[in-house]
Amino acid sequence: MNIGFIGLGVMGAPMAGHLVDAGHNVVVFNRSRAKIEQLELRGAVGATSPAQVGEKADVVITVLPDSPDVDEVLFGAGGVLTALRPGSLVVDCSTIAPESARDFAARLADRDVAFVDAPVSGGEAGAVAGTLAVMMGGEKDAVRRAGEVLDATAATTVHVGPAGAGQLVKAANQMLVAGNIAMVAEAVSLLLRTGVEVDAALTVLNGGLAASKVLEVKAPKMLARDFVPGFRVDLHHKDLKIALSAAEQARIAVPLTGVITQLVQALRSAGDGGLDHGALIKALERLNGMSPDSP
Rank of each mutant, 00 (worst) to 15 (best):
Q262M: 12
H277Q: 12
A142F: 12
T82N: 12
G4R: 05
D117P: 01
V91Q: 04
A185Q: 04
I96K: 05
K56N: 11
Q167K: 08
S49R: 01
L192V: 11
C93Y: 03
V80C: 07
F104I: 13
M1D: 07
V80D: 02
N25G: 12
L223P: 00
V196L: 15
H236Q: 15
V196Q: 11
D272G: 11
G278H: 00
R102I: 06
T257D: 07
A172Q: 11
E148W: 00
A47L: 01
G12L: 06
R85L: 07
H237K: 10
L280V: 12
V264T: 10
V128I: 15
L176F: 08
V45N: 06
G87E: 00
I242F: 13
I6E: 01
L240D: 03
P295L: 14
G43V: 07
G4S: 02
P86G: 02
K35C: 01
D276T: 01
R102T: 12
G137V: 12
P220S: 04
F227C: 01
D21C: 10
T156D: 03
L284R: 09
A34G: 14
E40I: 12
F75L: 11
L215T: 07
L150C: 07
V169I: 14
R33T: 08
P255H: 07
K241H: 14
Q167I: 11
L190D: 00
D272Q: 11
V113D: 01
L287M: 14
S49A: 11
G78M: 06
V160W: 11
V73I: 13
S291C: 09
L192G: 07
F104P: 00
V70Y: 05
N180P: 03
L202D: 02
D103P: 00
I260Q: 08
A22L: 08
V116M: 08
K35H: 06
L284K: 05
A155P: 00
T157N: 12
A47D: 01
S212Q: 03
A187T: 15
M135Y: 13
A187K: 06
G273K: 04
D117Y: 03
D103V: 05
R193M: 04
Q249T: 13
M175I: 15
G195E: 03
V90Q: 04
V217C: 00
A57N: 04
S121W: 10
V134F: 05
L19G: 06
G195K: 07
M290E: 12
V149A: 09
D239R: 05
V214M: 10
L275M: 09
A247V: 06
R107G: 09
A114Y: 04
A182H: 14
D66K: 14
L84Y: 04
L244R: 13
R85Q: 11
L190K: 01
H236A: 05
E285S: 03
D276F: 02
G208R: 06
L280K: 03
G23R: 13
A211D: 13
L235M: 13
E139L: 07
A142C: 02
G126E: 02
A154G: 09
P65N: 02
A16C: 08
M136Q: 13
K56D: 05
Q174K: 08
V196A: 15
E40V: 15
